[in-house]
Each structure stands twice: as structure tokens, then as C-alpha cells.
Nucleic acid binder design. Structure first.
Lengths: 137, 137
DNA sequence: TCTATCCTAAGACAACTGTCTCACAACGTC
DNA sequence: GACGTTGTGAGACAGTTGTCTTAGGATAGA
């Protein structure tokens, strides 16, 4: 029964991001934010995209004043998780570890981040095991 | 000038995977492999997909005997790297570290892999810096 | 040579994306 | 009350993806 989640095309994602940033927006507000960010869309385009997002159930609209105000229903984390899962399934045999390994080799992290990652890893690898190290530099 | 890389839809990706596995294949061979893996496509569908891959320059064909034999031009690593970069750009502000962090939280690794990852991290974090720890369990 | 196979070429066709035009309703102002 | 502004609705239209049909060339055995 489980209906599989709707896909989110890139252009819809751009609009959704605006809603995440601002919490909510009318078509015009979204348009302006997008323009400021370099997207040269027309009003109608943004309206269509919001409309499509709504029919997928990813945003809701609510006509408060003159215009409809759109709010995201899905969170950014949710979208990220879906995308990552789909990537892992399609290209990493369902093994998140393979993706991490690949990432480290092909997209080197900044040292600060690398340390942060290591710290997280340590704490996952057993609160007991990792404790004596961790302050070592 | 740089023409941006062609997109690879999911169904084409499935076909490409067959070529990576076998090194090369005719339409019929690919079809059979895909059938064995559960894809219920018709011969023509697979032929179309290979054709589209070829017009995108991702595979080449070469009529040796009766049928065309297709070989991948792009490697699996290349495709993975592209997909990951695009994900990082679109949803992680271009910061691979954010993706890694998210991955660790939302898609927990098996301990074996976690250790492997930590080891990689250690060696990246400076052969000098990480040396006094590393044998600690 | 006739016929059953296997292959390719050409393209159909619906769903989804990306983007826009146009007609029309509601609102505020003179 | 006529007008410009802002907003919506409906839908156009080309390009991409997913999948298949059909026609016709080459091949191989009866």
C-alpha cells in the first residue's frame, strides 16, 4: 500500500528551500527571494512550482489576505534523508559506509570537519571504547 | 563553454550498471542480465536505453558480429562522484562534511565500517597528528 | 529458396519537467 | 465607476524519461 514518496525535481527544490529559509512565503515573496539568489523566473513559473509542490502534498497553502501563503510540510532533513537513501541504494549497494568512504576520498573535508566527524564516530563506536583518547591534541 | 554533463536517468543507470559488471554487452545480453535481476523490460526498451546512453556519449557501440556490442565509456566512480557532488551542492551547501555528518546520524554504519572510516580519517588528519592514538583498542 | 530467427531503425505515446502566456477576479484610488 | 495593480486559474508547449510496436534487413537451417 505504501505509496512511494513523490520525486522533487530540482526547480521545485529551489522553491522549497525558500520556504524552509523563510518559514513561509507568498508567490511574490518567493519570487523575490529567488530573484535575489539569481533565478530569473517569472511569477507564473514560481506559482506553478508551488502548485505542483502542493499537489504532491509537500507544502500547504492558506489564503490569509490577498494572496495564498505557502508553508512547507516536509522538512529539509526529511528531503535530505530521502535523497541520501536513494543515492545509497542506487549507487552504494545500500551500504552507507561505502558512500562515506567514497566521500572522504573524492571530496576531502576541511580538517576541522574531519575532526568533528571523527569525534562523532568515536562516540558511536562505543562510549566505553573511545574514551581514553579524544583530547589528544 | 564547458557543456555540463548529461543527466543519467534511473533506468539508464540500471543498464549502465550491467555494462560495468560485465565489461560489455549486446542488447540481448543486457536484457538477460536485467531480467535475471528482476527488471521486466522488453528487448526494445533496453535497446532504446543503450541508444540514449550512446547519444549522451556514455557508452560506445561496436558492431563486431551480428549484433552491436556496447561498452561503457564512463566509469562507475565517475558517476558516483558526479551524483555525490550534485547532492552536496544542492542540499549540503557544497560542504561534504555536512553530508558525512548527516549520514552518520541518519544512516548508522556497521561497527566494522565505522572503524574503517575512522582509520581513513586518522590517516588524512595528518600522519603526524594522529599517531599516538590508533592502537588504543 | 522458404521460413523462422534475431537484429536494428524509426517512431509512437503518455507522464513528468521547465517555463511561460493569457484571461479574468479582487482591490484600491481618483 | 473606470483604471491600474496584484493575484489566480487554465493551459500551452517543448524537452526528457519510461516503455513499447512495428516494419524490414540479415541469417541459418529445412
Amino acid at each position: 500500500m505504501a505509496k512511494r514518496p513523490p520525486t522533487i525535481p530540482d526547480s521545485e527544490l529551489d522553491v522549497l528551500k525558500v520556504l524552509w529559509e523563510r518559514g513561509q512565503a507568498t508567490v511574490r515573496e518567493a519570487l523575490e527571494t529567488l530573484r535575489a539568489a539569481g533565478r530569473e523566473w517569472s511569477y507564473a513559473t514560481v506559482a506553478t512550482l508551488l502548485d505542483r509542490l502542493e499537489s504532491k502534498g509537500l507544502v500547504t497553502s492558506d489564503r490569509r489576505e490577498l494572496a495564498f501563503v505557502y508553508k512547507p510540510v516536509i522538512t529539509d532533513q526529511e528531503v535530505r534523508t530521502r535523497r541520501v537513501s536513494s543515492l545509497v541504494d542506487k549507487l552504494y549497494e545500500g551500504e552507507p559506509g561505502l558512500l562515506v568512504l567514497h566521500l572522504l576520498k573524492s571530496h576531502p573535508l576541511k580538517p576541522g570537519q574531519a575532526k568533528e566527524v571523527r569525534a562523532v564516530l568515536d562516540s558511536m563506536l562505543g562510549e566505553a571504547a573511545g574514551k581514553k583518547r579524544d583530547k589528544d591534541r
